[in-house]
Design a protein around this nucleic acid. Sequence first.
DNA 1: CTGTTAGCGCTTTCAT
DNA 2: ATGAAAGCGCTAACAG
Lengths: 371, 371
Amino acid sequence: MLEHSCIKININFSFMHKKIRIIDIAKMAGVSKGTVDRVMHNRGNVSDSARIAIEKVLEKVNYKPNIHVSAISLKSRYKIIVTTPEVSPGAYWESIHNGIRHALEEYENVRVELQVFTYNQYDVYSCRETYEKIAAFEMDALIIGPTFNEETVNLCKKMDEREIPYIFVDSAIEDTSPLAFFSADHYVCGYMMAKLITSIIPDHANIAIFQAVRTGDRSANSTILRKKGFTDYLEKNRCTNLILSIPFSVTAPEDNEMYLSRLFRSQRDIPAIVVLNSRGYFIANYLATNHIKGVKMVCMDLTTANIKALKKGQIDYLIGQEPEYQGFYAMKTLLEYLIFKKTVTKKNYVQLDILTRENIDFYKNFNNIMY
Amino acid sequence: MLEHSCIKININFSFMHKKIRIIDIAKMAGVSKGTVDRVMHNRGNVSDSARIAIEKVLEKVNYKPNIHVSAISLKSRYKIIVTTPEVSPGAYWESIHNGIRHALEEYENVRVELQVFTYNQYDVYSCRETYEKIAAFEMDALIIGPTFNEETVNLCKKMDEREIPYIFVDSAIEDTSPLAFFSADHYVCGYMMAKLITSIIPDHANIAIFQAVRTGDRSANSTILRKKGFTDYLEKNRCTNLILSIPFSVTAPEDNEMYLSRLFRSQRDIPAIVVLNSRGYFIANYLATNHIKGVKMVCMDLTTANIKALKKGQIDYLIGQEPEYQGFYAMKTLLEYLIFKKTVTKKNYVQLDILTRENIDFYKNFNNIMY
DNA sequence: CTGTTAGCGCTTTCAT
DNA sequence: ATGAAAGCGCTAACAG
């Protein structure tokens, strides 16, 4: 089981491992570098005989082009559009955009023109309008951070017709054919939130779930899935907690006072609280302002405000869904697809990180991202 | 608070951002590329006037060399030694070695000769012997995965004399002067384990802590720290749980049956279990074999065996400490220090990931590592 | 001391 | 259709 106590490994030194280059396969196939490049990039203008010879060599050897060297000699330009809900500082969507930007920095030699369109995620009409604008543009690819199902399906249909590849971040929408998506499994997310909250409250405690009110009366895709997971967990585990669904408004915050005071007045025992979107800090602040103590909270997303509430002990568990990772890999995958025709993995579920006030200080928003 | 709904950003396209190259600063300083390279790498042979001119330019412009392009034109070779406890498949130290290997892959163009020395982490004499062997070698740098304090201090002293830089992974040792370390905060780790286990057991339940027996009778550095954090949490929170310290042997597994059966026979109620090293699966398997059910467990490290036990529901919480990340960054930092004289951050605490059977499937051992 | 030049591995253009 | 050659940004060896 245990290995010997001294292993010597030579890297890039050993005779067997000698890194294989494009000129090597050219020689092996009896052609020139140019021809090899032509078949590798499907540029055409290659005789069958040459192509077959090269393909045969490629099968034998494990050629891995050095993408960074590729990038510096690349001439082509790409136009990529990104559309997401509006970005506010320290909040969820900013992280996704940061990830996207970091990917562009990694491929600093690649010429990409980026265009960002944001919409109001609490207003389906705003989304519709923005999507229509986007559909009129020329582009090589599209990254979508979706909120509303129907609107997104419409946009994607248009992209499909124009054969423009698109990638989802945050959440994948059914009945579309994206190149890939990078998202949490929202169902499992809700399921896990139920497990966490029930593990720290008495069996009989009520649980209040907060959900955002939206103009046009449609729920966000991810919230729907999370809620399903949440209730499924309780059902499966025969939890007897009473669930109170509480609306709350981001656009008209003055209404929330009413919702909240009504909730707390109606309850004999203080309920536990689960917030299925990233606005947990909002409730935490309400509780603090009104000196309501001892409320257990499980919330979503490592926004600046949520982290603050977590550190203060107002929030007990915070679930992270690696937004930077999502943005980074969405863009990276897109570029490698466009440039190198790299095959892409379609379904990409990100980690669901559990943060407490103990481990939050070590959580790396972006630095944990290598490669 | 919310931004306007359409932002247009051009990357690598805009007139202001034109990526600055080494030839650009050469022109601005009125010298040649070669001279610029000389001052940037402290190669000497540069007149004061030229140096000052270049330095002035460098202050003004934000020059960021393209390290991947650098790497391909690099000629120097580096000899790096890695020493860690023995590696077994699917276990903790394998992950650290994987991370190290991945860093070398990222810098595939850099010529590094790697030499790995492992020792038996349960035997201080093995460690001492291995370290003596290492001290006799020539090398440009050293990566140490330490176990025993005194032995490591001795090795480091020798390295200090020879001015060989070294980096710690897994755990930093006091009274040494490493270039950097990449490690979890083991104290907080133990602290958090205490919080997690107490959150899922009754107030009165006993908690058994397992610690490895070692030849030479020295505890591993990390375990000592974790235990301190663990007991401090209980004390601070006035927990009344009785703590049972149970030894267990990796080298003589036949003894463990005795330790374990003695433990469970002595207890009226089944205690909760915390394992401060990565051998949690071992206890989990004992419980399964002996049909002992309902034991709550919190353990360390995402080894194959532990993950299996987590998925089966035998372990409730598993704490991860990003071993791949540690290895990757240790090697990456070392290379960038050796090659580019990049300044290094000395203290690097990694994330403490909380895994449950819900989120384990999304946990990425290495893929979450970009950059 | 310093400018020039020859690579590194890859893409792309240009003759053939 | 294909080989040769230029060029990407950087380092290192080579003449002066």
